[in-house]
Design a protein around this nucleic acid. Sequence first.
DNA 1: AAGCATTACTTGAAGTATCAACCTCACGTA
DNA 2: TACGTGAGGTTGATACTTCAAGTAATGCTT
Lengths: 182, 182
Amino acid sequence: MFKKSFRTVGYMNTASTPAPADGPRWLSADEQLVWRSYIEAATLLEDHLDRQLQRDAGMPHVYYGLLVKLAESPRRRMRMTELARYAKITRSRLSHAVARLEKNGWVRREDCPSDKRGQFAILTDEGYEVLRRTAPGHVNAVRQAVFDRLTPEQQKSLGEIMRIVAEGLQPSEAGADLPWLR
Amino acid sequence: MFKKSFRTVGYMNTASTPAPADGPRWLSADEQLVWRSYIEAATLLEDHLDRQLQRDAGMPHVYYGLLVKLAESPRRRMRMTELARYAKITRSRLSHAVARLEKNGWVRREDCPSDKRGQFAILTDEGYEVLRRTAPGHVNAVRQAVFDRLTPEQQKSLGEIMRIVAEGLQPSEAGADLPWLR
DNA sequence: AAGCATTACTTGAAGTATCAACCTCACGTA
DNA sequence: TACGTGAGGTTGATACTTCAAGTAATGCTT
């Protein structure tokens, strides 16, 4: 004898009867495998890169990303809110992060002349130097973990897929699920 | 006149000369775009699911994953180390996590009879109930963010890609880059 | 020009993650 | 049996993230 609803929690419904039309749409067995692979890879990858950068550059991956954005910006500076938007993190998180990077001497702040509420985060020479010194090792880690293992088609596919997912989650779409407000 | 090495930090070398054979292999423009899409999507997605679950289930995504693993295990229990390995997190992190889930009454610990060092993490009825109640909403969030936006081919491709990346980062391969020790 | 909602950003507290150090027990070996 | 090594797991300090609440400047509206 079987329990009536063996494994109906988590992601999958393995009961023999199909879910009711108005009930939850569980993930299929295939979808579930895809999702687990994604979670596992994403977890391992973020972990791996965090460790690599913590060891070689003395900062977590997100912080490294902030320095990169600044390095790519004109005059190596960016408004706090804009930087937060680019890095896909909250302004609060950025505030704390910049505070820490400032302590390291890798970033400094400067008031925005045209908007007295505004702040620029600016990559210092020292910060640039850290980036220059550690970038090769980091790129290498990314290569080894991702690009060297994928065919060109897979790389292309990954790009398309992630672009779609990212677009669907942009805060710009925040109101898109509240159509009654439009 | 151009600076000699414009933008050689971060991920890309945009200088007109190719990198020396023994120098860092920067990401190509295409690779860079793929990588940014990945980082953005992964950041946004993890954030989105964390918020969704924090709001609806009172716990972060990782913790939810632990409950799911336990729910799927025989007798709803798993040894700590095994659970950590499945969830791709460190034992230390798991220890802290289980301590918190224990406080919530969703998990309890039990000594392993055959190995006095060992501990089982066990999903309580209350924990199971939380899962049962919140799983539909979570699956829905995953669907909306990922599966509903991808074609079947893209889903398949995503699964393959992430499986490859995950495999490359398994701790089991930890010694693979130390061939001189074999 | 005086409200008043909004934008830009910061702060502090509480939650979670990481790292190294630690304890206990298991197991092979002498 | 005693020793040494390693496995299973926890702990506490420190770092990072999140959330809610805060300050201050902007700009619209009347």
